[in-house]
Every structure is written in structure tokens, then in C-alpha cells.
Nucleic acid binder design. Structure first.
Lengths: 254, 254
DNA sequence: AAATATTTGTCCGTATGTATC
DNA sequence: TGATACATACGGACAAATATT
């Protein structure tokens, strides 16, 4: 069936300063890669792997459970250990977990990366966007406008900041979704998740400006005007964090 | 000292469909958040936590080891389990791990992201680099040259492709390490981890060209010539995947 | 400097529950 | 129904690393 011996580093304990369960974890990931295991495929049984790697059941399980908790595999009694479809849930979850705990700086660093990425793929975005995408972008901008109206009238009773961030995320997702690049899309998606936690998101003035910026982007795209698109996108990012003065208009929702 | 009882869900086994080590993992993360543990703070000892949570040491360790492998804590014999500074390395590593296991195309998509990121932060790289960094870059290039020499003489018996990738990764890490952006650094690090699996890495001609490109980059930096640096970096990335013709010079090592 | 206590690292054995045939 | 294969969970034991006295 599976021959772990081939890809196995003979003598796992060669790197003696590294802990065993770490080595086993690395080994297992390499094994999955090198055997090109696909979702649905099964790993050897625990006992087999213990024998092949020459480690105890405990050590192996500490590695396997890490794979399971991070979503790489799923193990069931009586069945075995099955490779799972890639699921970014764990990534996002831990990213927020860490970003929310402290470090405002990290959030800004993340935004700097986002800026470079989006601007770097601007031309590809422009050339791959379809008319239906632009229509959808217009729709999303309208949705943003509605959220703004609700917030300004009802003083934040109805729609939350995270709702606005969600639509904002969808907008940028549309911009880059025609580009055949899962990595780019994953990162943009992940970064959007962080964005939800940005305090700016709950300020009325920030929302107003963001909506306007998106109008400008959509207009440029509708005219199919490359220069204007570039300018609108730069405006979108470069003006974003200029307003450090606090307003305290809308501080509902934590 | 630490009072785990307060944040503990009384009766951990209430959610009977969920596996114990999963529950413990969630429990521990909540505990860290709720107690507001900062980097350097210690968790209770394994035995204490076993008692508080009412689980065996094995189950607890499966959760703890997940926290350790994902970089949340670090455990040492005689010391205990210490909260670590947030480090997104693991997240991006698993992100790219999943993406590269999908298909060949994704590897190129990853490189496209890398190109945009590195070129996007080029100016910041240039302005933050110190003389000692440039010296180190020169050193790394010399190391690459040595690997090339070994490979061309011994036909791949000595140094592996992954060894070359490692040095290449170090080179690019140096370029961007002075920029205060952990996210950027993590992505770059993660990407060269993927690079190890790129088939090009085992081709002699590719290595030769790569070494020359790095020479060019170092020279531009030594002259402190911004224009030349930009050109050298563009050359580095844009020429990278032009040679799709196979040579089969050096196909050792899987 | 040396002995001792503390804490994690690693291994073993056993019983239980679940899926498959 | 029974038998088998497999993961889940528990407990005990000793080794190794570190801290403390």
C-alpha cells in the first residue's frame, strides 16, 4: 500500500536537538507531499507509522493530532486517518486569534502587504475583469451605500462594522477573482478577515470615504479607463489611514 | 497562581460528539485569551492542567503539542510551557503547503505573488539595507557559487537542490529583513519553503543563471545604484521561468 | 560545585468504542 | 451476529533537561 520507508529519513533521530514529535510532524507533512496524497486518501495506520518511523504511539499521535486540529487530516476509529480538502478555517481563526490579542502594528503591516499585492496585480485585474463583474462591483458599492445610510440614520443600531467589512471584502474579491491565482485570492481573503477587526471600520466618516472610493473605482472600470483605475486604486489605499483623529461617532459593537 | 477553574467549562465532556483533545485545545486557547497571558507568561504544569481539566496527560499533550507546533507556546523540560510571541510563519507555511500540494500551476501562482511582493517592497528594501547586510548577501552568493561548483563537478552527489534553495531563501530574507513587516517576511519565508519542491531547483543551468542574477543584485547594491538594483531584481524574476526546455542534467534527489 | 526537586520527553500496556465485513 | 481493524482514552514508569538549594 503506502511505503513510508522510501521517503523516510533513515534514522529519524539524526537531528538530535529537535524534539521527536516535531520531527515526526515534519516527516508526515513531507510524506503527504511526496506521495502526493489527495483528499480522501488514507495515511497508514498509527501502528504502521510507529513501526516505520521507529517512534512510540504517543509521539506519533502528538504529530497526527496537530495535523487533525489544523485540518490537514481527519481520523476516525475503525476507519483510519484520511486526508482532508484544504480548509482555510484554521488559518483565519488563528490569525485573528493572534491579531486581536494585541499588536496594532501587525494590522498595519498586513495592510501594507495587501496594498502591494492589490496594486501589483492591478493590470491583471483590469484585463481579466468581465462586464458582469463590473456590474457586480457596482451592486456591492450600492450595498455599501445602503449600509452607510442605515448607520448614519440609526446611529449604528442596524448594521455592524463587520457587515460593511464583509461587503468590502467581497468587492475586492471580485476585482481579483478572474486572475487564476489561488494564492493571491487566499491572502486577500485572509487579510480581509483581519480588516474586520480594524477600529476604523466602525467610524462613520471612514465608511463614507470608503464608499466614495469604491464609486470612483467602479466608474473608472465602467469607462474602461486604465489610467483612472490606477489612480482610483492608489487613492483607495494611500488615503486609507490618514484620518487618525478620533470622532467617536459610532463606537458600538466590539 | 493560575486559576484554570474559573475559565474552565465545568464538565469538559458535555459536548460528547467532539473529541476530547479538540475540546482541550479550544479550552487552552480560551484560557490564554481570558487570562490575558502575554509572551513569556507560563501555563500551569501539565499535571496541574490534567487535574483541572480532568483528562489524562496524553490527551492534554496532544493539545499542548498542537499549540507548540503552531507556535503559540514553547515547552522545555524543567521550565514549563511558555507563551510565545505571535509568529505567522506556521500559518503561511501551511497555507502554501496546501496550495503546492494541489498542482504544478499553483507553484507558479505562488511565484507570481512572490514577484509582486518583492518588487513592491523594493524601495523599502533598498533604503533600509545596511552595509553589513550587503556583505552578507555577497557571502550568500559565494555560497551559491560553491554549491554550483560542487554540483557541476560531482554531478549532484554532494549538495542537494534543497540546500541551494535554502541559501537562496536566506538571500531574499536578508533583502527584506530590515523592513519592519513580519507579514511580508513570513510570506517570503513560506514561499522559499515551497521553492524546495520546484523541479527547476535540480537543474544545473537554472542554478548557474540564478547565481549570476544574485551577483548582479549584489553589485548594484554595493554601488548603491537604485536603478541598477531595480533592473537586477526585475531580471531576477522575469527571466526565471523562460527555460521550459528540459535538459535532464541533474535529476537526482526526489 | 554538587545534590535534589521540578517539569517535560518518551515509551509501554490495557481497556473501550466504532466502523467494516 | 460475530470477528477484525482501528482510533480513543487512561495510567504508570523512567529518561532527560532545567532549576533550585
Amino acid at each position: 500500500m503506502y511505503k513510508m520507508e522510501e521517503t523516510q529519513i533513515t534514522g529519524l533521530r539524526n537531528l538530535k536537538n529537535k524534539k521527536l514529535y516535531m520531527q515526526v510532524y515534519d516527516e508526515l507533512r513531507d510524506f503527504i507531499l511526496q506521495e502526493q496524497l489527495r483528499p480522501g486518501d488514507k495515511l497508514p495506520t498509527e501502528m504502521e507509522m510507529c513501526a516505520n518511523l521507529g517512534v512510540s504511539r504517543n509521539v506519533l499521535r502528538e504529530a497526527i493530532k496537530t495535523l487533525e486540529i489544523t485540518g490537514v487530516v481527519s481520523s476516525k476509529p475503525g476507519v483510519g486517518i484520511v486526508i482532508q480538502e484544504f480548509n482555510p478555517d484554521f488559518l483565519f481563526q488563528t490569525l485573528f486569534y493572534n491579531l486581536t490579542s494585541d499588536s496594532e502594528a501587525l494590522l498595519e503591516q498586513t495592510m501594507a502587504v495587501r496594498r502591494v499585492l492589490e496594486l501589483g496585480f492591478l493590470r491583471e485585474s483590469f484585463t481579466t475583469l468581465l462586464p458582469e463583474d463590473i456590474a457586480e462591483l457596482k451592486e456591492k458599492t450600492a450595498a455599501m451605500e445602503r449600509i452607510y445610510q442605515q448607520k448614519s440614520e440609526m446611529k449604528g443600531y442596524v448594521s455592524s462594522g463587520t457587515e460593511f467589512a464583509r461587503v468590502d471584502g467581497q468587492f475586492h474579491n471580485i476585482l481579483y477573482r478572474r486572475i487564476e491565482n489561488k494564492v493571491l485570492q487566499s491572502i486577500i481573503k485572509a487579510i480581509w478577515h483581519c480588516d474586520r477587526y480594524h477600529k476604523q471600520m466602525f467610524r462613520l466618516r471612514y465608511i463614507r470615504e470608503t464608499v466614495d472610493k469604491h464609486y470612483r473605482i467602479v466608474e473608472a472600470l465602467e469607462r474602461h479607463d486604465w489610467e483612472a483605475y490606477v489612480e482610483a486604486m492608489h487613492h483607495h489605499f494611500d488615503e486609507r489611514y490618514k484620518h487618525d483623529d478620533l470622532e467617536n461617532e459610532n463606537n458600538e459593537e466590539g
